[in-house]
Amino acid sequence: MATLEIRDLHVTVEADNATKEILKGVDLTVKQGETHAIMGPNGSGKSTLAYSLAGHPKYTVTGGTVTLDGEDVLAMSVDERARAGLFLAMQYPVEVPGVSVSNFLRTSATAVRGEAPKLRTWVKEVKETMERLHMDPSFAERNVNEGFSGGEKKRHEILQLELLKPKIAILDETDSGLDVDALRIVSEGVNRVRETGQVGTLLITHYTRILRYIKPDHVHVFADGRVVESGGPELADKLENEGYEAYVKGGVSA
């Protein structure tokens, strides 16, 4: 069973000619089949955690370990991490002009699966997945994220999640900027992947709204660069009622 283990992770970022520590000792274990919600106020380092796990060059790991089934994730390049089974659904997916969605998806699936998917079954697979995400077939001919609305970008991220079938999926504020309909469609996509039992999900969010659609097994409160409290789904209810104030005003994390 695939397991992502994060131990005492410290990460810095260069900003304004200064080095700033964003992650200050993150500990977290995510197993295949589990769903963990990471909730926290703005600026707590949630997205930094997501991008650090994916290997974004902007972030420097200064301490700690990250392993996937015992393999050292931090020693892998960005593409190696993806091929090892890590997937990051991005909060702000970037435009790639001149590269069509269909070409991108196939290149990506070929890389992750280690061989080119058979054309006939692949076309069907993409078509059906797009239909379930309420994406028009013409989408495949558009350039990656170019001119996509916020909702289209997120659906495109979940389309990739469904096609690439990672071991560990990190969803970075996938709910932000979505209206209720789009949130439901996107959540259904995530749930289809979860129901296979083959993926461990790390759901990073600022709001509790998405947790009505995607039920987490574990909820972690993230503040000032580390996990400050962990619990079951009831912790989300507490946050819903009380907000993050107890954590940012120097309650637990102080």
């Binding site: 991490r81 990051l88 992750v112």
Partner: peptide, 9 residues
């Protein structure tokens, strides 16, 4: 980064 994060070398 985006393309590499999808496994593309």
């Amino acid at each position: 980064f985006y393309l590499m994060a999808r496994g593309i070398p």
